[in-house]
């Protein structure tokens, strides 16, 4: 697979257009202002959390302002934002995360005599993949079902944070907020001028120009 590109497209350019209402502006402003320091996790746990987020959704190395994924996970738990359900086999979200992060460090120590955050990407991925497949064992997991914890807690929270962020919307060419203007062109292969233009091979220049006018 190769990366698609939407050259020059930034969904935030539409902030002051009819595609954003006041409620949207205030919601996104608050999201972009998320505190970067942990309020729920200890700074030690937070460092492990960052090392997890970095593998669940690796961001391009040249990205100037990466989405602060760990900060969103922390903020969600700190503010008491719940999902509306809890699997009976999993502890409440904050407790589950704390057990999981400590257990990941435990695994890293057993295998590599290092903290999880200090492992190579490949070593971190190996441990995470084994968690996904339910192949890790030990009292340090405190009986948490690994597959459930991995997919319904770890991946769930991190992807929610990433794809709720304007940077991710720009990356996938999503139009983003759309109220009150909405859309006019509904047919295939038609874009409204305020939607992302894709820089398909040979069309990068045109897309760049079009994406400067998504207003």
């Amino acid at each position: 697979m190769t990366e698609r590109s939407f050259p020059g497209y930034d969904v935030l350019d539409k902030r002051d257009t009819p595609s954003w209402n006041d409620a949207t502006r205030s919601a996104i402003d608050a999201r972009l202002a998320v505190p970067r320091e942990p309020r729920f996790f200890s700074s030690d746990e937070f460092a492990t959390l960052e090392a997890v987020c970095d593998r669940i959704l690796p961001q391009p190395a040249d990205r100037q302002d990466p989405v602060p994924l760990a900060a969103y996970v922390d903020a969600k738990i700190f503010s008491g934002q719940l999902d509306g359900y809890r699997f009976d086999k999993l502890p409440p979200q904050g407790e589950a995360w704390k057990i999981g992060l400590a257990a990941l460090d435990h695994e890293a120590r057993d295998r590599h005599n290092a903290r999880f955050r200090d492992l190579s990407r490949a070593d971190r991925d190996n441990i995470l993949r084994e968690m996904q497949q339910g192949r890790l064992e030990g009292d340090h997991w405190q009986g948490m079902p690994l597959k459930l914890f991995f997919m319904k807690r770890v991946v769930h929270d991190v992807t929610d944070a990433y794809y709720g962020h304007p940077t991710a919307w720009s990356e996938i060419g999503f139009g983003g907020p759309a109220s009150p203007r909405g859309y006019v062109r509904m047919d295939k292969n038609r874009r409204d001028p305020w939607e992302a233009a894709e820089g398909k091979p040979g069309q990068e220049e045109r897309a760049l120009v079009e994406n400067k006018h998504v207003v």
């Binding site: 593998r55 690796p58 991710a168």
Partner: peptide, 12 residues
């Protein structure tokens, strides 16, 4: 998840 997810999402 990981790079595979990020790339797949670009087909949105």
């Amino acid at each position: 998840w990981g790079d595979e997810l990020r790339l797949a999402m670009q087909d949105y």
